[in-house]
Amino acid sequence: MYSRSMEILVGAFMLLGIAALAFLAIQVSGLSLNPSNRDTYQISATFTNVAGLTTRAKVSIAGVTVGQVTAIHLDPMSVRAVVDMSIQKQVDYLTTDSIAAIKTAGVLGDQYVSISVGGAPEMLQNGDVITDTQSALVLEDLVGKIITTLGTNN
């Protein structure tokens, strides 16, 4: 009914499929098999305004990506936005007085969280909260402010 060459070709077909999936995983989606990048710990930060920040946005220190935003929700008590972030485990030198700021890559680029490390002796642990934050720059507010200032000057 079937020959050996048919078996070989079907096997090659299957292998080609697996190779394609591996190519898509590693080369296209940049899936890393390096476990050090997957070992993370969670911190969060509270902002008065997170306008435009989305989950999976980058978290960076001095422009180097060290983690990503995992969730954004509203704290009903303080009515501030709470941004949960997962940070790579090897980045264990975030001090308790670190400052988190929401910045924009380029004029119209994606928003990301930038953390500036301070000088306190204690380090942030899993579950800690950064309260010293700079909120997102909302372009509309800025334009509004400029217009009102110009209006009062006249």
Partner: peptide, 15 residues
């Protein structure tokens, strides 16, 4: 079995 394999091969060669 074939359809997902063919789709991934399609994606790979298209990229």
């Amino acid at each position: 079995i074939s359809m997902p394999i063919l789709a991934q091969i399609f994606n790979m060669v298209a990229i």
